[in-house]
């Protein structure tokens, strides 16, 4: 069954019209993206800073209205960027656990919001529900009357997850949920997420810049570069047998114990200027395989072997 279907979703941020001259076409933060996610699947979304992954995630949960395209959750189309309508179906876990909790509210007040506003539960029911959720995320009940600044990063992130769970969503968008945490705590949170997924039959969209973490938790992975999808494939194969040169560059850059230290080959290391994007493939400037075709024509996603899709005129063959 399809949990989430995204069709042609894109976002262009308009720029103010200058006093003289013609208006700028705007910054294309996310170029049209289409994919679908099965119920119970974890889809990893990988990309470096500036690749549009946060803009994309904010559109998925209705915090930002898309410029084009539609979002369908379990067959229902959601096209009116209304966070409350989205909230019951899809929830968001933020990167910075502390700043996602209001410093002037107790944890109980924070937890009650989705129960009261999205599900209209009464006071007694809310208490029971909060207790249930807290025991599931391994938090003690006495935390409920404390304020966010009293918690460590790992605890605060579990509170963030508990709040998302309280909305009883079908899908959770996890935006770098562990990148602010220490490694020993990171594993606690990742394992908790895996347990919760089983228990509630959740579907995850896991956004991260850490390839090893994405590989450890995902079934399929999407690689974003400069606002567009450059490759989609199974987590097991996409980093071992990448088809797009950018995916290969990412995989080779990850520090691995025992691998000799050499910077992977590339021509340049700057992202293109979003105000003045190149004509063809956005990666052409950094790519060793780039030809004239790449610099003039934008490659489309096309099917490769092992069910992988890559947007490349000269995919890697092995």
């Amino acid at each position: 069954m399809t949990a989430l279907k995204v069709d042609n979703l894109s976002k262009t941020f308009p720029l103010g019209r200058p006093f003289f001259g013609k208006a700028h076409p705007g910054v294309r933060a996310v170029r049209p993206i289409s994919f679908s996610v099965r119920t119970g699947e974890t889809l990893g979304i990988v990309g470096e800073s500036g690749c549009g992954k946060s803009t994309f995630a904010r559109m998925l949960v209705g915090l930002l209205s898309p410029s084009t395209g539609t979002i369908e959750i379990e067959g229902r189309a959601l096209d009116n960027a209304d966070p409350a309508a989205f909230g019951r179906l899809i929830q968001y876990v933020f990167q910075d656990p502390i700043s996602s909790l209001n410093p002037r509210k107790t944890i109980r007040q924070i937890m009650e919001v989705p129960l009261k506003r999205l599900h209209g539960l009464g006071k007694a029911e809310r208490h029971v529900r909060i207790r249930e959720i807290f025991s599931q995320v391994n938090l003690r009940e006495e935390f409920l009357d404390r304020y966010p600044h009293e918690f460590s990063g790992g605890q605060a992130q579990r509170i963030g997850i508990a709040r998302a769970l309280a909305a009883a969503p079908r899908i959770m968008v996890l935006d770098e949920p562990v990148s602010a945490l220490d490694v020993s705590v990171q594993a606690q949170v990742l394992n908790l997420l895996a347990e919760l997924k089983q228990q509630y039959e959740l579907t995850y969209l896991f956004i991260s810049h850490d390839l090893a973490v994405v590989e450890a938790v995902s079934e399929r992975v999407i690689v974003l570069y400069f606002g567009s999808v450059v490759e989609i494939g199974d987590a097991e194969t996409i980093f071992n047998a990448p088809k797009h040169p950018y995916t290969r560059l990412l995989a080779q850059s990850a520090p691995i114990v025992g691998r000799p230290l050499t910077a992977p080959e590339q021509k340049d290391n700057e992202l293109p200027d979003p105000l003045n994007p190149p004509a063809g493939c956005a990666f052409a400037g950094r790519c060793l395989r780039a030809s004239d075709l790449c610099r003039h024509q934008e490659p489309q996603l096309s099917s490769m072997e092992n069910g992988q899709f890559a947007a490349c005129h000269h995919p890697i063959e092995d």
């Binding site: 990742l190 090893a212 450890a216 938790v217 980093f239």
Partner: peptide, 18 residues
């Protein structure tokens, strides 16, 4: 605790407590 690329999907080891 540290996941390494190339090991596939797995349960990660964690250290309980702080």
């Amino acid at each position: 605790c540290v996941p390494e690329l190339g090991e596939g999907r797995r349960k990660l080891a964690a250290i309980p407590g702080l």
